[in-house]
Amino acid sequence: MTVTLSCKIHAAKDLRLESEGEAGLAPHEVEVALGAAGICGSDLHYYFHGRAGAFEIREPLTPGHEAAGVVRRTGSAVKGVAPGQKVAVNPSHACHVCRYCREGRENLCSSMRFLGSASIYPHVQGMFRESFVVAESQLTPVNADISFGELAFAEPLAVALHAVNRSGPLLGKSVLVTGAGTIGCLIVMAARLAGAKEIISCDIADHPLQVARQAGATQTLRSDRLTGKELSDIADICIEAAGSKEALATCLQAARRGGRIVQVGTLSAEGLQFPANSVMARELDYVGAFRFGVEFDWAVNYLVSKRIDVKPLLTAQLPLRDAVAAFTLAADKSRSTKVQLTGEAAIM
């Protein structure tokens, strides 16, 4: 029997490398050998805190929801991919029958199974392992010359594209993005693709802002060093991608009258005060952007066609066995933007 190595988080700061036996395949399932998988903010929360927002680890969890790899085995009814084929992996497995799926909003599926998430119990195990089994419908075959590292950005890029999609038309508009991490920088790239005239990136640290400039921001601001007056009424669209109440406050102040605020980051409910009267009096649109839908296919296309270059965001790749070191580096925003774990497919 083939044995595969898997990262398992048992509790806060308790990550173990464990061996798993070969999984069986249902007719429409595919086994994928890991090429590269990015460490996301939610993965960091699971590792350092044992929870991500309201989702608490209740059994050992293999995190990881942004990955690319190579098909190893296929179920008897699989026709769209074959062993040896490079694939991007969509972590969303929607039911396709609930009202939200039928309305074309699969990201809001009432029965969503999202890889590497503790949102339901038993948890949906993720892709920080040497190989994993997913439904054929979650795979996008790729025949182009693109690295696993670049292709693994399809998931976070899809999040960014969905955020920009929720922003409305951006042609000729000014856009402010709070947070210059991976998602924030990818939103900068997506806003450029959508025709934004000016893209302002805000953060409270210098290294992320340097990366944001490489991503295409026309202006970068240390929001912790500015007065409220300097931030007032400077953008048509404000996108909150930092996941902090201070960043949301920046968006609420920076949005022009009649503007729109898009919340992408997950905020702590503790101490959150919302200026509803300001939203009313200035006629601000306030919308959420959660995960993605069809944008995953768009993301793969933009990466493969080189219309978006994510290489400036990739800080480091470490082998799966060095997962703890990778998590530590990924948490240090003074040194890293995106850190990935690599598997056996990366050296095939």
Rank of each mutant, 00 (worst) to 15 (best):
R58E: 12
E103G: 11
D224A: 12
D206C: 00
H10L: 13
H207Q: 15
K197C: 13
A12E: 07
W298I: 03
V304H: 02
I234T: 01
V294S: 15
E136I: 03
A249H: 09
M189D: 02
A118T: 03
V300K: 03
Q317M: 15
S232Q: 15
V177Y: 00
L157C: 12
L17N: 03
I199Q: 07
I200F: 04
D14H: 06
S111L: 06
S223L: 10
T220Q: 00
F274I: 15
R222Y: 00
N107C: 03
Y100E: 12
D285H: 08
T315V: 11
L161H: 01
L108P: 08
A212R: 03
A118Q: 02
R58H: 09
E106T: 15
F128M: 13
G104L: 07
I9K: 02
D203S: 03
F292S: 05
S76D: 10
V211F: 00
F128L: 14
P60I: 06
S244D: 08
Y121F: 11
E18W: 04
L15K: 01
R129V: 08
A330E: 00
K79N: 15
V81R: 02
Q317G: 15
S336I: 13
L193K: 13
R192G: 05
R58K: 14
G53L: 11
A254P: 02
C238L: 07
L267N: 05
I187Y: 00
V177P: 01
C185S: 06
D285Q: 11
E240A: 06
C251H: 02
V262F: 06
L176N: 02
L151G: 00
C251I: 06
L25E: 00
A82E: 14
T74V: 15
E136R: 01
A67V: 09
A299F: 02
A191S: 11
L115K: 11
V89P: 01
L34T: 04
L15Q: 02
T62Q: 01
Y47A: 09
T266Y: 09
G293S: 13
K229S: 14
V3Y: 09
G259V: 07
A11K: 10
L314H: 15
A276T: 15
E283H: 12
V324L: 09
G64L: 06
E103M: 11
S336W: 11
V310I: 09
Q273V: 15
C238A: 14
V32D: 04
C109F: 04
E240N: 07
S119G: 14
L15R: 00
G172P: 05
A205V: 08
V175T: 04
G69Y: 05
A249G: 12
Q125H: 12
S42A: 09
R256T: 14
S131F: 08
Q85K: 09
G172L: 04
A144V: 09
A276M: 14
K306G: 02
F274D: 08
Q214S: 10
H65D: 07
R213P: 01
E29K: 05
A316D: 14
S201T: 07
E59L: 09
S19L: 14
L272E: 07
K173E: 08
G181V: 05
R99H: 11
S19N: 14
I200D: 05
H28F: 13
G69K: 02
F290V: 13
D236F: 06
V310W: 01
G195K: 07
Q273D: 13
L176I: 02
R129F: 08
L252G: 00
H10P: 02
A158T: 10
V87W: 05
A152N: 01
I183L: 13
L320D: 04
R72S: 13
G84V: 11
D224K: 06
